[in-house]
Design a protein around this nucleic acid. Structure first.
Lengths: 162, 162
DNA sequence: TCCCTATAGTCAATGTGGTTGACGAAAACA
DNA sequence: TGTTTTCGTCAACCACATTGACTATAGGGA
């Protein structure tokens, strides 16, 4: 996709120290664009962590389960879930068969957020396919999957970086 | 996740919603492995944010310049730089030509950290090339560069995700 | 020269999100 | 039944970011 007569910075430098930066750059581009579009579709004020958490809730889960999936303490998960509840994305109900459990379920608004997320992700994927080629994007996806397969599936991003 | 006779998790699913996750997974794998090796080479207790900050310092910069490069407030940058100074990675000196400016420079230890980082990054890149193929890795690097070219070069990861 | 403005760095207060520890209520098990 | 485990929550604390206010220095005109 890089023609010779292109504007400056048309060619990446391919130094080894750039790898994490281009990974971060692409991730950031994806998430920033995702949330820009989600904001346009009725979900402003949501951040990546909300999407991850809602994804962890799935069709319904307890705070402790969500905590396990996110790799954070149950207190931290409960806090985030409380915020999502306050914003109308999830609702809590006491489990009928176990009075200790409080099952968190996405509301209609929460399900809409997840549907919109899928749609937006598909849009972005299609646009990325246009930019680098469908085959290249598929190879990229597959290779990244392989390279990151070992890494923990945790989403405790903030504490991880600090 | 239902592949036929294949070993578990042999084939990525290639769903659009997985793209950010595989990006994150690869980034995480890279940074975790980097810091694991840096710890072995005399730099334990360093985190990605330290490497980014040290990189932002370069040969020498003021706290405000570092803040600009990292995309954070000057107070936040000053705090991180204070920590790096305390750990012996940078030192501060008042600018001879401008008594307001305090120039931050990497110490020998700081320069060693950067050298070791480069070495480790090259090792990891070589290993990744083994795993997916040198050509594929080069294509991946190039494509990621293209896809992330628009995104802000900021490194304010923590606040960005939250 | 003197003032006015802009810049560099720091201090203080605040917000957010994470942690650990402790606890009561409910379930599961011996 | 009594003991142990699990779920959710409260409280205290910590790490890291923010904004606003402040001092000190530099620089550019009247």
């Amino acid at each position: 996709m890089s023609d010779e007569t292109a504007p400056p910075r048309a060619e990446p430098t391919l130094a080894a120290w750039e790898l994490p930066l281009v990974l971060l750059g692409a991730l950031r581009a994806h998430l920033d664009e995702s949330h820009r579009r989600l904001a346009e579709r009725g979900h402003p004020d949501t951040r990546p962590v909300h999407g991850f958490t809602l994804q962890a809730v799935g069709a319904g889960a307890t705070a402790t389960e969500v905590a396990g999936r996110l790799g954070v303490s149950k207190q931290a998960a409960a806090k985030t879930l409380g915020l999502l509840e306050q914003q109308g994305y999830v609702e809590r109900a006491v489990d009928a068969t176990d009075a200790r459990r409080k099952v968190v379920r996405p509301t209609e608004r929460g399900r809409d957020f997840l549907r919109q997320s899928v749609a937006v992700f598909e849009e972005i994927r299609a646009e990325w396919a246009d930019r680098v080629g469908a085959e290249r994007l598929e190879a990229l996806h597959r290779d990244l999957w392989v390279l990151g397969a070992d890494s923990a599936r945790r989403l405790d991003l903030q504490s991880w970086l600090g």
